[in-house]
Design a protein around this nucleic acid. Structure first.
Lengths: 343, 343
DNA sequence: CGCAATTCCCAAAGCGCTTTGGATGGTGCT
DNA sequence: AGCACCATCCAAAGCGCTTTGGGAATTGCG
């Protein structure tokens, strides 16, 4: 069923039916009702493509997922972020278009979306330091919103981020207060902006207490379970092993715990662990009592919120760039305790 | 830059330019080259929406992600599946459209995609027993392919699945051969088709050896870490605890391991664990030597393959329904060993 | 009652493509 | 030379919608 057929069935012009359905005022209320009923009855929905052509808007938002070419890895937070954003789009009648791109294709993918007029805007995932995408998107004139930030960006842009620096500074302080002085860092890739900021927070907290920053107990890679395990195992084997660890994700924290236990140590007593927790739906940090002491911030909520902001910016392009900084919550769980005394 | 502008720049008609770009034979090779060069130079790409309108195809495939209304959970395998499918779509010039839907909205979402002519076909995720979506999609005439199968479906349909029954039967046999007779099952929700089949495989293997199937050591829920932990903890507390566990996912297996170790037991010695492993990019089952003995099948490869099949079915609608059954590989790791002797 | 202002509706243009149905001019063959 | 036949290109229609620019009733008001 298309507009023409529906309008013929109703004995009205396409104009009137279109206006009735889109809530324009120049149509009689009784007529509108009749049209709406008929539309529902025949399951009429305007063709996205035709509507897009006619209005010049795509009614779609693009999400370009970077696939790390090294490990072909998909960021595990992605599913939850998308679920949040999807809710928002559905409510506003937008579609969500997904593209995958490894580092080499990335620019072409964004250019393609723009040239094909496939989307009204894009969400930038996984921003890096001095991320070139920000300049690119400005240049090609494709509205965008960044999930995270990019240190070093000179142009203004719309973003939503967790206060990663502060979260890790606070987590480090928490460990310092418990008496830990050897605190290891199991970070994400540090060209990723979030990882860089977390490291900053960690470093600042240490320096403020006059504790030296020791590269021997700082690791950085993709946040897998295996990476958490290996890093922890290696650090525990040092002559001067850490008594506490800061992990960038719950997944690597699980690996860290494995290494701790394998070494015959007890988490929360011999080794304290704090992790960042994205509150993923399939990886909850325990039930009531968190397993890990964690800095928590829901990535799903972030998705919903950022989508809302992007749609707003598209509707009203003259709006100033919005920037949202979310504070992570520090949840105290059972993975932390006072630093073990040296006997 | 649109077709009209490009053709004017070239002094050709839109017809010729369009044909040149789409590889039709009625255009001089020299002209085609000239057109292609100009298109590249001006970054011309045909508008998806206009092309879709003109051809009557959407050039897009929909993926409807079920969001479990109970736990608001996004299946963690989703990201990797999408990454695989995305590769295929990109190669064939298709877009991927994502929708999220909880149980209540599901039918409306599929109907909407069809009515708005937003996609040429859809991938059905997370099929359940007697899944109503198969009948629905047949009725509304939307081409589809199922990731998994649906026991009880009467109509023929296109699917790609892992041989879950066989995988779990084989895993159970493996444990039985090691002398285990108390084997616990930590399964996904059993209204999900894959979980149902896994349970079948498990049950069959036990019955063939004349071992009673004991509901006390069979759990089923959403495959979270916490669920794996709690189930294992509870089962180990039984008067007659299992000496081996079969887990439906690596995530719940991590929880199971936690419970095992917390109970002061050693995995692979006191309690053996076999898990299914979807080979997720961010959750590798160890490096060379698998941590867990596992039945493995790459969900990413499945995504790429199923997308290929769906596109084929769309291109040639008269093709018979394709069905692909992948066998999972049994990877022996360090989580299994002979059943402990009762002393 | 007469005229302007409303209200409610419609015909047609246009969005950017593909595709149908020629038109044109050059070739090969008798 | 005359004819059929390609090879190469083009004008225009059409995909399903929105939107512009009216037009015909109806209403309000002096």
């Amino acid at each position: 069923m298309n507009l023409k057929q529906l309008s013929q069935k109703l004995g009205l012009s396409q104009t009137t039916v279109s206006r009735a359905l889109n809530g324009y005022p120049e149509v009689n209320e009784a007529t509108r009702l009749r049209v709406e009923r008929a539309a529902a009855q025949y399951h009429y929905r305007p063709s996205t493509r035709a509507k897009g052509l006619a209005t010049g808007k795509a009614l779609a938002i693009g999400h370009v997922i970077p696939i790390s070419s090294k490990h072909e890895m998909v960021n595990p937070v992605f599913g939850d972020f998308i679920a949040g954003a999807g809710d928002t789009y559905a409510r506003h009648g937008y579609e969500m278009i997904l593209c995958t791109a490894d580092d080499a294709q990335e620019e072409q993918v964004y250019r393609g979306l723009k040239a094909r007029r496939a989307v009204d805007g894009v969400v930038v995932h996984g921003p890096r330091l001095n991320d070139s995408r920000i300049k690119l998107l400005h240049e090609i004139g494709l509205p965008f919103a960044v999930h995270g930030r990019s240190s070093g960006a000179t142009l203004p842009y719309t973003w939503l981020d967790v206060n990663n620096r502060h979260a890790f500074q606070r987590a480090t302080d928490f460990l310092l207060d418990l008496g830990h002085t050897r605190i290891g860092l199991i970070n994400g890739m540090e060209f990723m902006d979030f990882a860089h900021r977390r490291r900053d927070g960690y470093t600042i907290a240490l320096l403020e207490k006059g504790i030296p920053v020791d590269p021997a107990i700082m690791r950085s890679s993709e946040m897998t379970e295996v990476f958490g395990y290996q890093s922890t195992r290696d650090m525990l084997a040092l002559a001067n092993p850490p008594t506490a660890l800061l992990c960038a994700s719950l997944i690597s924290a699980l690996g860290a715990r494995r290494a701790v236990e394998e070494a015959g140590l007890v988490m929360g007593r011999d080794v304290s662990i704090i992790t960042h927790d994205d509150d993923l739906s399939y990886l909850k940090n325990g039930d009531e009592i968190p397993i890990f002491t964690a800095t928590r911030s829901s990535v799903r909520a972030a998705g919903a919120r950022l989508a809302e902001i992007l749609l707003g910016a598209i509707t009203d392009p003259d709006l100033p760039h919005q920037n949202v900084l979310l504070e992570a919550e520090l949840m105290v769980g059972r993975s932390t305790g006072p630093a073990p005394r040296k006997d």
